[in-house]
Design a protein around this nucleic acid. Structure first.
Length: 496
RNA sequence: GGUGACGUGGCCGAGUGGCUAGGCUCAGCUCUGCAAAAGCUGCUACAGCGGUUCGAAUCCGCUCGUCACCUCCA
């Protein structure tokens, strides 16, 4: 069924390309993971939902995918290089926690949020702090190749030297001369030969908590190195897909490519570079520095001034999927409301479909709408194959929903679709919604609240001495391993 | 300043030359004990101005506007 060849937009070539794995049926995919120094926010949700759909899609069409997504728990300077302190170290000192304690706390929190969003865990989730040796090895290679230099216990990548043989800026479309003419004078860059040079290894100042021994003294790895080193370790020098947010394109991914080309890998790392676009809030990028970000916890609890009610993880997922991953997506309470309704409509349709299957026994071998409905499903797969156009695929699903709702208004069954076609629709509708888009039916009702309702009816039946009804309620609950208990203070329930 | 993206109906958001996605909202109708759900109908848009074309939201030019990256960021 899903035999449409996948086309994917490659940032490296700025074109949609036919996806051809280097060694089918295997696919290696690396996605830049979070820096675990804070709660996950809407931006994380968008990135990891987007790549989750890619991962699910590739698996669905039969590829054997190894999905690697890292946890960044070292490096990433918070200020200028001479401050010599990284984000995680800074927070740790403020809160007097071990750095690894902070890392673990936010890693757990991140995992929790990702699970709520029904994002499949990656196959390997390497931590930067666990790959210092690999990073040091990579620095050595780059130095041996004459493209990095040591100054006072720090090692810098020599961008101008690299640019003689390679093209620094090939991914982000930047030209080194222009970059040079626009560099700002930053404090504490005396160690660098060129302002474009970036750190591969930074010397740790005495108060710096996170530090590792190296051939150049105690320090910590540079901002961009971990992804180059870990992707190579688990996926090889060249692999299929490297993903991340658009904001990582420069300098992060540009530097990754430079490092890998300058090391013994001598590669661009990935054949396809894929970037998801940003979430905006009132048309502006959401960002830590702008102070307008919403954490996933805040969204799910409704505890934020931007939202007037709690929004469920699946509502958010649906909201994200209703836009194409390469478009910016504007967040608002109103937009979330619309997404919530749409999501509910889709789930109700799914439930209706499942009921139909059982009810659909006496029908003809062929129906006049068979071809039409099969085409509707096909178009959904076609949309997915076209650079993962989830928005278009969802619109196709709604076309199916409208058709079915119209033709199969309960309890009247239409004979316009054959049994085989209905089974086909059901199978693929389920596959698309549940497996590929990764949506799931969130049971809206809270079990405790439902039990309260049941107990009210139980009390009423008892008061009216309707013992047939009382016994029926007891029997029904027993099937759920629950028992009702009468006492002087009222009715309560317990597990049996 | 450099580079890039974008401007679609009340809102969100697909769509790269003709067949004018989809969701939400609003109004009306059908169904319904009431309601909900569902269905139907209506509000039918492509920033502005020129150009190319038999034909443009879609290609080209200009103008206006918005945003992103160039610094940690998904």
């Amino acid at each position: 069924m899903n035999s449409f060849p996948l086309k994917i937009y490659n940032t490296l070539t700025r074109k949609k390309e036919l996806f051809e794995p280097l060694a089918a049926p295997f696919v290696g995919m690396y996605v830049c993971g979070p820096t675990v120094y804070g709660e996950a926010h809407l931006g994380h949700a968008r990135a990891y939902v987007s790549f989750d759909v890619l991962y699910r899609y590739l698996k669905n069409v039969g590829y054997k995918v190894r999905y690697v997504r890292n946890i960044t728990d070292v490096g990433h300077l918070v200020n200028d290089a001479d401050e010599g302190e990284d984000k995680i170290g800074k927070i740790a000192k403020l809160e007097k926690l071990e750095p690894m304690e902070v890392v673990q706390y936010f890693t757990n929190s991140f995992h929790h949020d990702m699970a709520l969003l029904n994002i499949l865990p990656p196959d390997i989730e390497p931590r930067a702090s666990g790959h210092i040796i690999e990073q040091i090895e990579m620095i050595r290679e780059i130095m041996d190749n004459g493209l990095a230099y040591e100054v006072n216990g720090s090692v810098y990548f020599d961008v101008p030297a690299y640019n003689k043989e390679h093209k620094y800026g090939k991914l982000s479309g930047r030209i080194i001369e222009e970059l040079l003419s626009n560099t700002r004078e930053l404090e504490g860059q005396q160690e660098k030969r060129s302002p474009l040079d970036f750190a591969l290894w930074k010397k740790a100042s005495p108060e710096h908590i996170m530090r590792w021994p190296s051939p150049w003294g105690d320090g910590f790895p540079g901002w961009h190195l971990e992804c180059s080193a870990m992707s190579r370790k688990y996926l090889g020098t060249t692999f299929d897909i490297h993903g991340g947010g658009l904001d990582l394109m420069f300098p992060h991914h540009e530097c990754e490519i430079a490092q890998s080309q300058a090391s013994n890998s001598k590669s661009d790392e990935a054949k396809y570079w894929v970037h998801n676009n940003m979430i905006t809030i009132n048309g502006q990028k959401m960002g830590k520095s702008l102070g307008n970000f919403i954490t996933l916890g805040e969204l799910f609890s409704g505890d934020h001034k931007m939202v007037d009610m709690p929004y469920s993880p699946m509502t958010l997922r649906f909201f994200i999927l209703q836009a194409h991953y390469r478009s910016t997506l504007d967040f608002s309470n109103e937009a979330l409301q619309a997404a919530r309704k749409g999501y509910v409509k889709l789930m109700n349709a799914l439930r209706l479909l499942e009921k139909l299957e059982a009810a659909y026994a006496e029908v003809p071998e062929e129906g006049e709408a068979d071809l039409e409905t099969v085409k509707m499903i096909e178009s959904c797969y076609q949309s997915m194959a076209d650079d993962l156009n989830t928005a278009k695929a969802i619109s196709g699903l709604f076309n199916v929903v409208s058709f079915l709702n119209g033709k199969f208004r309960e309890p009247i069954l239409s004979a316009e679709v054959s049994k085989a076609t209905l089974a086909f629709i059901l199978t693929h509708f389920r596959t698309l919604v549940l497996d590929v888009l990764g949506l799931k039916d969130e049971k809206a009702a809270d079990a405790d609240a439902l039990l309260e309702v049941v107990m009210e009816f139980y009390k009423k039946a008892k008061a009216e001495k309707d013992y047939a009804q009382v016994d029926a309620i007891r029997a029904a609950l027993k099937k759920q391993n629950l028992v009702l208990k009468d006492s002087k203070t009222g009715v309560d329930w317990s597990y049996e």
